[in-house]
Design a protein around this nucleic acid. Structure first.
Length: 371
RNA sequence: GGGGGUGUAGCGUAGUGGCAGCGCAGUGGUCUCCAAAACCAAAGGUCGUAGGUUCAAAUCCUACCACCCCCA
C-alpha cells in the first residue's frame, strides 16, 4: 500500500489489511460509544488503532487530541471532506484539534514551492473552518510544516532510528524527499504531545495513510520513552498515536479512486456549479439496463456512487438513507430520480458552504500569518 | 567524479533520413429512467530544449535539461 499512489482498494483488501497489519476492527462496543459520529455509525470508519486510550481519556475527563492535516496542493474535494469532518466531529466530542498544512509534503510530492502552497493552504483552512472547526487557541492548534520548528526537530531526532531497510519495507523505493516528508509527518502527529503534554492522540485518515501511522508508532515507541533523572521520571513516555481508518470513496465515474489526474472522478469545492452538476449527472449508478429490469430486479446500491456520496456526506437523515436503499433494491426508486435529488442536495451544500467560507478567508490568513 | 540508457498526444507505445501512427483514457452521438457496458464518429502533436548537417531530421551530429541504471 502506498500513501502517494492513486490506486484504489477493494473490499477484500480491507479484510487483508485488518489481518496483516494489525488494524483493529470497529466492533459494536466501539460503535455504540461513538454512535454520534456519522462515519462510525454508517461504518465508513471500519478500523482503528488505540481507540481505547481515547475512551479512557474521555471517561477520566483527561485531555486528548485529534490530529490530521491537508496537503495544500489543490481545493477541497469529497475525499478531503471526509477527514476534515472527522476532525470537526472529534473536536466536538472534546478533543483539542491539531491541524496541519502539509506544505513540506506538497513540495516533496508535487513540487509546489512553499509560497505557492500558501494560497491553497488559506483556501483549505477556510474550508475546514466553514465546516465547523473551532479555531480558538484552547480548542485548536494550526500550523504550516515549513514554519513549525517542532516538526522539523522531530524529523532529525527520529531520523537517527530509521534505516534504509525500514523505509523500503514501509514505502518501497521513493524519492528521498518523500522519506523526509514522512518523518516530518511523524513530527506532525507527535506535535500535540510535545507542544502540550503526553496525551492520547487520534489521527483520522483514509486507510491508504496507514504506512505513516505505522512508522510514527514504531518511532514513537523507540524514541519517546520515559525520561529519567536520578531514577525519577521527568517526562512520561508518549502515548502511541492512534488512528481511525475510513474507507476511501471511489471515483464518481466508477474509476478506482478519486484523483486529480481524472477530473471526472471528482469535483472540488471551488468548481463552477454547472460543472459539478455535469459530473454528477455522469456518475456511475447501480441501475439496470432499462426501466423494466430495474423494476423487476431492483438496483444495486453497493455499486452506486450516488448512494455512496449521500452516505458519506450529503444525506443527513439516517432513516431516509435506509429507506432509499430499500426502495432501490425493490425497484421502486429510479436512478434518474435519485440522481436528481442528490444533485439538488449537493448544490445546496456547496452554495451554502461557499457563503460561509467566503467570510472565513481573512480569518484563515490571520491564523496562518499569511498577508 | 566516470560510464551507459531513456525522453513521441493525458497515459502506454510504434516509427534507422522522405505525409507522425496504434492502443487505452478523454470528447460527441446511438442506446438507457440516469449512468455503465456495447456500437458509431470526430478530435487530440513545438517528436525534452537549443543549435548544426541535409533538397529533406522524431530519425544523423553537438550542447543543455529531466529521469533511470551501473562503476568508484
Amino acid at each position: 500500500m502506498d500513501p502517494w499512489s492513486a490506486r484504489g482498494i477493494d473490499e477484500e483488501d480491507y479484510e487483508r489489511l485488518i489481518k496483516e497489519f494489525g488494524i483493529e476492527r470497529i466492533g459494536e462496543i466501539e460503535r455504540q460509544k461513538l454512535i454520534d459520529n456519522r462515519f462510525i455509525r454508517r461504518k465508513i470508519i471500519f478500523g482503528h488503532r488505540s481507540l481505547d486510550d481515547i475512551f479512557k481519556a474521555i471517561e477520566k475527563k483527561q485531555p486528548w487530541a485529534v490530529m490530521s492535516g491537508i496537503k495544500p496542493s489543490g481545493p477541497f474535494h469529497l475525499g478531503t471532506l471526509t477527514t476534515a469532518l472527522e476532525i470537526v466531529e472529534f473536536q466536538k466530542m472534546g478533543a483539542k484539534a491539531y491541524y496541519c498544512i502539509a506544505d513540506i509534503e506538497s513540495w516533496e510530492d508535487n513540487g509546489i514551492p512553499y509560497e505557492e502552497a500558501e494560497e491553497a493552504g488559506v483556501d483549505n483552512l477556510a474550508d475546514i473552518l466553514a465546516l465547523g472547526l473551532d479555531p480558538s487557541p484552547d480548542k485548536a492548534y494550526i500550523w504550516r510544516q515549513s514554519k513549525e520548528p517542532i516538526v522539523k526537530d522531530v524529523c532529525f531526532k527520529v531520523g537517527r532510528l530509521l534505516t534504509q531497510n525500514m523505509v523500503n519495507a514501509i514505502y518501497g523505493e521513493k524519492r528521498f524527499g518523500l522519506y523526509l516528508a514522512a518523518l516530518i509527518q511523524v513530527g506532525d502527529i507527535l506535535l500535540p504531545q510535545i507542544l502540550d503534554a503526553p496525551q492520547p492522540t487520534i489521527v483520522p485518515v483514509g486507510i491508504d495513510q496507514d504506512p505513516h501511522i505505522r512508522l510514527t508508532r514504531d518511532l514513537t515507541r523507540r524514541y519517546y520513552k520515559d525520561i529519567k533523572e536520578d531514577e525519577k521520571i521527568v517526562r512520561d513516555a508518549f502515548f502511541l498515536p492512534g488512528a481511525t481508518y475510513h474507507k476511501l470513496l471511489t471515483g464518481l465515474d466508477g474509476t478506482d479512486k478519486m484523483s486529480k489526474r481524472n477530473p471526472n472522478s471528482h469535483f472540488t469545492f471551488n468548481e463552477p456549479i454547472d460543472s459539478i452538476i455535469k459530473k454528477l449527472k455522469g456518475a456511475l449508478t447501480g441501475g439496470r439496463k432499462n426501466k423494466k429490469e430495474q423494476q423487476e430486479l431492483g438496483g444495486e446500491p453497493q455499486k452506486c456512487m450516488i448512494y455512496k456520496i449521500l452516505t458519506y456526506h450529503f444525506e443527513e437523515d439516517d432513516e431516509k438513507l435506509a429507506d432509499d436503499f430499500e426502495k432501490c433494491v425493490k425497484g421502486e426508486l429510479m436512478c434518474g430520480e435519485h440522481k436528481k435529488e442528490c444533485i439538488e442536495k449537493v448544490v445546496k451544500f456547496i452554495e451554502n458552504h461557499q457563503k460561509k467560507k467566503e467570510k472565513l478567508i481573512d480569518k484563515a490568513r490571520e491564523i496562518l500569518k499569511i498577508g
